[in-house]
Design a protein around this nucleic acid. Structure first.
Lengths: 236, 236, 236, 236
DNA sequence: CATGAATGAGGGTTCATTCAT
DNA sequence: GATGAATGAACCCTCATTCAT
């Protein structure tokens, strides 16, 4: 069984697939990728329990048992999708933030909000897949496999909020943990409910979210409409 | 087959139970209630797909097939739970707001936040059940049955936000629809991740949420720590 | 799930089934019995791995999933058949021997040979089922469940051989353990290859087996043709 | 597709392997042999139904599909193993007996018992494989392919017993057919249950078996402990 | 001569659902 | 009003088998 590194998969979603046979060398890797993509798509709108391997196979253009050539079971397939999504989001976020290392904490938060929203809204089923995973329908086995990456992703946000707090930019009476969960929850809800065509533009969503969340977190009054992290998110 | 109207069930949860045998007359209604309670509990932490009728039966103290005497299928049972939860939340919210009709829009929002969080965190499996339902694992049939009540609940919040906007209390550059989704999403995320004992106190969560969301939505700077809707939420 | 005691099942095979509803009270017990009978039949000529639950269901007159109402899985079903067979054989053997407690060891061995052969050849699929189990195709889980009863059955024979040895009736140079395995193996082979109509009569098989094995084990020269345990084996 | 005659394979096992690359010319034949050896090993302790081609491949050091270059399906592979085992046993036995042509029938039987036991216990997975096959888990197709060789092997024993009977050495009241099945069954049971280290020595097993079976078959009282066929069995 | 990749049939098992009692 | 017993659809997964390379 061929097993590509997760990081490859995680970032691959944003690349054109026309070069796959050149880069990854071989049918297996391509099929594996298609299966992950398919699983991400299905997970994104059915959740783990609702995902049938036959659906995944159909989307990927293979029979269901072919999945077992590439993954040892449903749990492993789903876990890899979740992990790939988490890693993709975190890496993208980290890269984006690295390009704004010298900005002040609030601006960095604004950039993070921008990046997270654009990723989950526009780009990847992987991101939507793991956002769904919050429902308790994920078996313990999968939960364990994802936990390290979930924590890693959460730590990025915790650090951002921590920076703001240390800089004295956070309102009093705000519990940082609550702030963090509220923040991520709010962003996920937005990406979840966002539907192309029927929702405000992504730009509008991003701007509103920044406005509300940053003014909410901090005393500082600024105009976030000039911040843009979109060029950075292309990096990955 | 005995079949109570949905509204009966929905609102019954807000009444004292001492009169149930008088009003609804007997064993059937009692079992029906136990099944709804059981289903709410199971839905709250397994979601629709993850809920097995045998689990519901076990919690309710009956065999699974007994469910079919009271509900025509799994979908109907779940729908009634969701609707009951939605109605309960909406009615409670409306009652609470009615007691603060003369307060200004931001205070009313603060009260709504308080009420919503306390309901979902502390009180009812019904509320937690429908909050979970955001995951797409609910069949279309169920979705349709719940839609009217979902919309009704959403309208309460839409009105609150609308009032604030008309009063000129909302920041510019904030799309009201986005604000609404962000708000509810943030609250649901908080109730979702809240775990007795391991999380900050409910009071702390409420306060932080109010602080962030209200300062985020409005230019006004206030201290929300004095607002308390808890006496109102006891009404239901 | 209704669960009859094994001993009931074990001995039930030799009773007329016309009274089952009177004795065991209920459809479940009857179906359970039919399933065990069916499984015994299938196991007897396909072995564990070769047994399909659909076959068992068909023979028993139910659908395959109905098996799960009575047994928790294939292993449990098979184990119960094996154990029932073992218990049936052992109990029958013990009862038969009890009726010949005062006979000398060789006569008791002759009686045991008679009983074992008649049981496995003529009466029960259960006996044939566990005789087949010698093949290694039985999962460890099943093996463990049967081991106590296998050992108990083996001990009966070990005791018989031990008695003969202590009475000085066993030839020198015969290892008792080897003798025991040879004995049981020989009997099982005979029951295995025996086919109604195409083989010598059961009486002839029994007589030859006694002749060979007892003369083989002991110096004593006797005529075993007068021994008959058949009346005893009706006991169970 | 290269397809060696069965007899080639069957007898090849009895030749020294130092010349194989010369005689059979090449990689294909070597792999074929490895596959048969592997299949014999797996069949010996899992039986036909329990044998997976992937297991065979793994033992042989090739992938499962490679089997299809050498055999047309699972049944053919197994049949060749069985036939090879049968032929090996028969040829060895015949050679051994040829060296004792002038001995009296009982001595020849003693030698045969010795040879059979040592072969199955010590030497070959092939022998153990076909002994297992007595379980009915072998499909009809395989059964048919093996039948001629099974009969041929059985005839060797039938002849030995026939000789004894004609020489007046067999007890009365012994059916020759029953004697034959009892004999082979007993030997197979012994080889089956024999486990290196935890069982009596092979010598002890052989001696006990001879003692019991020969004294059982015949009136003659002898001491079989001096008979030894081991030098003959080296022939093969 | 062998592998990589995939297929298709089928097996065990789960679960919503039914129906007689 | 509820249970006991069973059904049937569907799911995950295994394994013999195929075929291009």
């Amino acid at each position: 069984m061929v097993k590509a590194k997760l990081s490859t998969v995680a970032t691959s979603n944003t690349q054109t697939s026309s070069v796959k046979s050149f880069e990854t060398g071989g049918k297996a890797a391509a099929t594996r990728r298609r299966l992950l993509d398919a699983a991400a798509l299905v997970l994104a709108d059915k959740g783990f329990t609702g995902m049938r391997l036959s659906d995944v196979g159909e989307v990927a253009g293979v029979q269901a048992p072919a999945i077992y050539y590439h993954f040892s079971n449903k749990e492993e397939l789903a876990s890899e999708v979740f992990v790939a999504g988490l890693v993709h989001c975190r890496v993208t976020l980290e890269n984006t933030l690295k390009a704004h290392e010298d900005d002040d904490p609030l601006e960095r938060l604004a950039i993070a909000i921008d990046a997270h929203l654009r990723m989950s809204v526009r780009q990847s089923d992987y991101a939507r897949a793991w956002i769904h995973r919050i429902a308790g329908d994920v078996p313990a086995q999968v939960q364990e496999l994802c936990q390290p990456d979930e924590r890693a992703y959460a730590r990025v946000w915790a650090r951002l909020i921590g920076e703001a707090k240390e800089a004295g930019l956070l309102r009093d009476d705000i519990d940082p943990k609550v702030a963090q969960q509220l923040l991520i929850g709010a962003l996920n809800a937005l990406s979840f409910s966002w539907k192309a065509g029927r929702s405000p533009s992504v730009d509008a969503v991003v701007l509103s979210a920044q406005q509300i969340l940053l003014s909410g977190l901090s005393f500082e009054e600024r105009d976030w409409s000039t911040i843009d992290a979109s060029e950075a998110s292309v990096v990955s």
